[in-house]
Amino acid sequence: MLVAWKYRKRKSIIQWFDPRAWLIFYACFLVSTLAFWDVRFLLFFFVLALIVLFNSGVKWHEIRRAFLFIIAFITFFAILTFLTGRGGTELYTEEHLIREFKAPFSIFGWTPTLKITVERAFYAVTQFVRVGSIAIMTVLIPYSLNPALYGITFKGLGLPDKFAYAMDLTMRFIPTFARDFQLTMDAQRARGYELEKISGGVVEQVRKMGPIFVPVTIHAIIGSEDIIDAMDLRAFGVGPRTWLPVLKRDFKDRVLIWFGVAILIASLVLGFIGYGKFWVPEALLRLAGG
């Protein structure tokens, strides 16, 4: 099996709740996390995400690749912004220098210089915690929510039948699309195409991906005709539809929703009255001689 769903039925805090309740809570968590740049507040969300992770029933070997990728991704960008100092400049105006490293050479009069400042260092840490919290909560969704229930879940959240079923269809055809993508990759690799050796600028690289993207797109278009026929032939969209699965929301789901809404309101109020902005510890500023 080349493509497999991540979802399994498991002993999971996420699966304990109704999927609609969990998605509402997730949306509240997402917006609330994005409202903060203060790592003290963000730690609350990070800890919450870790609690969910450790009670998700997802085994490490299942998420190892996804998490290693996310950790590498976040670390790379945190280090990149730390080194260049180009991230976070909209959040702070003043920098407190801890140490400066100058290269022993110059290129056309420019001497490469690395400035380690309190703000840059703490921005990297804050970014790591902020994105990490969101990533943990997001990655767990495909492992925890039953793809067969996406349609009814979104219908239950108020979307019209056609839009809600589009979610079901998306879940259904992700493995098919992935299979087609893999087939095209294999077909082109068998003709000596080496994706990993693609070089050149961004435009050039996109152009060189044509052997993959063109067949995959053409195949998707051809396949979509059959899908539309199959839907038409079974009376899709002729009127209000019955949804066979039934979701039940109970007390614990209402508690979860209210908990999420409370976090959201608290975050917005804190932001409104001036809390949650980028923060660096006083001790570090003193260390830097600020």
Binding site: A148, R234, F236, R241
Partner: peptide, 19 residues
């Protein structure tokens, strides 16, 4: 391409749900 449901039950029920 004809199978639209993520699981067998949903798939077989699809046309009847639409009606």
């Amino acid at each position: 391409r004809q199978i639209l449901g993520t699981n067998v039950l949903n798939e077989v029920a699809f046309g009847l749900e639409n009606l």
